[in-house]
């Protein structure tokens, strides 16, 4: 368990470095929380799910917990962890939400913790912004917008390593 946690923590640090300062980044403040650049990806035709990503820094002295989220056009949003066990991708819901310790930054990024937008009624299109909310135990409900990046984006546009900008307009 502790090994798993360490691996996740390392992944988050790497992801954080990649996310450093995306061009056109947007941020939100909610009490002691700083929420950086919520983003998602354009979805393939007919896709019923999408992924949501962001990072949250707790500048306060008490822990807070990301309990859930909503996004326009999705039936509901779940928070999942993803880890690699050799070549096997492991997925699991995160029960009880993601705790953000004082001074810590929790990053949701491809290949790690992420939000899953479930039962999308319409495809997400690159360049759009979709409205949503984040629900924290202490900071309450925070309205945010998710920037929609390319289908293959591994990081938001402008961030270092955002090489997956694939646009197959078939």
């Amino acid at each position: 368990m502790s090994k798993l946690f360490r691996r996740r923590a390392t992944g988050s640090l790497v992801a954080l470095a990649l996310l450093a300062v995306p061009a056109g980044a947007h941020e939100y403040k909610a009490g002691a929380l700083a929420i950086a650049h919520p983003w998602t990806r354009a979805t393939p035709n007919g896709a019923k799910v999408g992924g949501g990503y962001l990072s949250v820094t707790n500048t306060g002295t008490a822990p807070d917990t990301l309990l859930g989220a909503t996004v326009t056009g999705a039936d509901h949003v779940e928070i999942h962890s993803m880890t690699m066990d050799g070549t096997v991708m492991k997925m699991a819901p995160v029960p009880g939400g993601l705790v953000i310790a004082p001074g810590a930054t929790v990053t949701l990024a491809p290949g790690g913790y992420h939000m899953m937008f479930v039962d999308l009624t319409a495809p997400l299109k690159k360049g759009e912004r979709v409205k949503g909310t984040l629900r924290f135990e202490k900071a309450g409900t925070v309205p945010v917008e998710f920037a929609v990046e390319a289908i293959g984006a591994k990081a938001p546009e402008g961030a270092q390593g955002a090489a997956g900008g694939h646009d197959h307009a078939h």
């Binding site: 990806r41 393939p44 007919g46 999408g50 993803m82 991708m89 290949g111 694939h166």
Partner: peptide, 12 residues
Amino acid sequence: TRCPNVCPTTLA
């Protein structure tokens, strides 16, 4: 297809 995270990236 109901894979939000890595399948679309691999396909792209």
